[in-house]
Design a protein around this nucleic acid. Structure first.
Length: 570
RNA sequence: CGGGAUGUGGCGCAGUUUGGCUAGCGCGCUUGCCUUGGGAGCAAGAGGCCGGGGGUUCAAGUCCCUCCAUCCCGACCA
């Protein structure tokens, strides 16, 4: 491809609408343009990168036995009503009507479609296992699309669905996808981690998220410092390590103490001169069924996802001031478990271990000292309901946990019979018995992976593409387009590298060298091949590695070999 | 959905407070000259329903009402 014919409109200045690096650089370097909020047009550069990512994905899906199909974006409402998600999915589902007033949705995911396909075609255990996938646009009417391609309303996703006879079969399929995902992101040149994750509303099943580590990531990941231990988890899910009971302390008599205006843990610790570890923090939550008091140590934060899973409820929110007053008899800030009635109490295991604790007295401006579980109060449930923090011991090996920010680029999920049951996707086993097909689903955000690669690989000058997904392997820059020797040599290089199978861009624009260098750095070609007066006469080429800035001079005859070597290293 | 901000040539912005006559600047774009190793220089040009609608006024980019769009923070997110 020649730059004079190539559509890659770069911008000198940073567009005002972009905040995150990947968004800024994708716009500036001429990869994308915004069409509507959260909806983008992919220009040739982006399309090239996406093609390479998709190709890697296809190869790895096929290697594990996946078969590519293409399902419709437009999905009939009936199927969604059948699965129950027409009502559950909410406003995030793009809905539309045809001229006959029939309702449709733009697919945010394809469990309904694929399950309905399989239920019609698969009847026997002999047809299982089966893995079907597609790479296609997805639609989610996000409340707030943001960060460019990181969270759009239209995005490209690979989704594979596995169909097995039983849980064992599902586990095999799941591990195949786990392996495939590791290979995919590795091949894309990304630094990532598979982490344990919360399974959300579906509950109970295994799920892993694949996180590209980058400071701009929206998710927090905890992982074991010991590289031999592979524990890594989304903070939402991270379990606290089992703790030994501390030194025994004699139980002291309970005392009520006035603590005027001390509502927060910090205020109470300062007023009473005690460490926050001695405080039981009591938070009231409302679910769709009841009011619940959640107890954690004063220096800890509640993990609402864990609490929600513990309670088995659908909705959970912090109780308002009126509810707190009604249930505890005191304003917000003085709740405690002692004497608390008409309210379920859930405690974190750490709370059990606190001897002579301080809690709210359920009375304005008062706290209780020397409170002890069993003697002074009882709880219905003891369960891990708090956030784990960096530095705490790994639940598997005890080494300290480290924290990192991650961008979720993929998730693999054991669905079980959730969709097969409601949609009636069954097969006959060897005994002629009808059984629900056991399913799994496995997604990769393709456009998000492109953005994540930039978040992880850029500098002040622009993008630094990993070679495997770069739009071109190299750019060839003749310093002066008026120097015939340079132009001819650049042309020869272009022809020979193209013939050797490389993707190369010849920057034949009649621009000054500086302009072409700046654009090359911005767009992020892994290699830059400069043909200038210094070297052209000897038929030599300067090879510059974008990532390291390293420059070497190579004879034209050795260039193909040199390029191959360098690309393999990057 | 709550809070905040912004809409003026392709991009980045000034002008709006205090209404005034022909709407500016930088970059980019076109043509010519010149230049060619890190976004050169000179000259001449093209390009604007000042987000839309309604209103106030002799007069609106500027004031009022309303709608829309976009971005940021939060809440939310199989």
């Amino acid at each position: 491809m020649r730059a004079t014919e190539f559509f890659a409109p770069t911008l000198r200045e940073m567009p005002a609408e972009a905040e995150v690096v990947s968004h800024q650089l994708l716009l500036r370097a001429g990869f994308i343009r915004r069409t509507a909020a959260g909806v983008y047009t992919h220009l040739p550069l982006a399309q090239r990168v996406l093609k390479k990512i998709k190709q890697i994905i296809r190869e790895e899906m096929d290697r594990q036995g996946g078969q590519e199909i293409l399902m419709p974006i437009i999905q009939p409402a009936e199927l969604w009503q059948e699965s129950g998600r027409w009502d559950v999915y909410g406003p995030e589902l793009f809905r539309l009507k045809d001229r006959h007033e029939r309702s449709f949705a733009l697919g945010p995911t394809h469990e309904e479609i694929v399950t309905s396909l399989v239920r019609g075609e698969v009847n026997s255990y002999k047809q299982l296992p089966l893995m079907l996938y597609q790479i296609q646009n997805k639609y989610r009417d996000e409340r707030r699309p943001r960060f460019g391609l990181m969270r759009g309303r239209e995005f490209i996703m690979k989704d594979l669905y596995s169909f097995d006879r039983d849980e064992e079969g599902l586990h095999v399929s799941y591990m195949k996808m786990h392996e495939a995902y590791n290979r995919i992101f590795q091949r894309c040149g990304l630094i990532f981690r598979p982490v344990e994750a919360d399974s959300g509303a579906i509950g109970g099943s295994d799920t892993h998220e694949f996180m590209v580590l980058a400071d701009s990531g929206e998710a927090s990941v905890l992982y074991c410092r010991d590289t031999k231990c592979d524990y890594a988890s989304n903070v939402e899910k991270a379990a606290q390590a089992v703790r030994e009971p501390g030194e025994k302390e004699d139980l002291k008599p309970i005392i009520e103490k006035e603590t005027p205006g001390c509502r927060t843990v910090e205020e109470v610790t300062r007023f009473l001169g005690i460490p926050p570890q001695k405080i039981i923090k009591t938070l009231l939550y409302e679910t769709e069924k009841e009011v619940v008091a959640a107890l954690v140590r004063g220096d800890r934060e509640i993990n609402e996802i864990k609490l929600l899973n513990t309670l088995g409820c659908l909705r959970l929110e912090l109780a308002g001031a009126n509810t707190v007053l009604r249930v505890t008899g005191a304003p917000v800030g003085f709740a405690g478990p002692v004497g608390l009635k008409n309210c379920k109490i859930v405690a974190d295991p750490e709370v059990v271990l606190i001897a002579n604790a301080v809690t709210g007295a359920n009375k304005n401006d008062s706290h209780l000292l020397n409170v002890n579980m069993q003697r002074d109060y009882h709880v219905q449930t003891v369960s891990d309901i708090r956030m784990v923090q960096a530095g705490e011991p790994c639940p598997r090996c005890g080494s300290p946990l480290l924290e990192a920010k991650g961008i979720e680029v993929g998730q693999i999920f054991k669905l079980g019979d959730k969709y097969s049951k409601v949609l009636g996707a069954n097969y006959l086993d060897e005994n002629g018995r009808s059984q629900p097909i056991i399913m799994g689903c496995y997604g990769i955000g393709v456009t998000r992976t492109m953005a994540a690669a930039i978040e992880q690989n850029h500098d002040n000058d622009g993008i630094i593409w990993p070679a495997a997904i770069a739009p071109f392997d190299a750019v060839i820059i003749p310093v002066s387009t008026k120097d015939e020797a340079q132009v001819n040599l650049a042309g020869e290089i272009y022809d020979s590298l193209s013939a050797a199978g490389f993707d190369v861009l010849l920057d034949d624009r009649p621009e000054r060298a500086g302009v072409k260098f700046k654009d090359a750095d911005l767009i992020g070609y892994p290699l830059r091949l400069t043909v200038g007066s210094r070297t052209a006469a000897e038929k030599k080429v300067e090879v510059r590695v974008r990532k390291t800035g390293e420059v070497t001079v190579t004879a034209f005859n050795d260039l193909e070999k040199r390029v191959r070597e360098l690309l393999a290293l990057i």
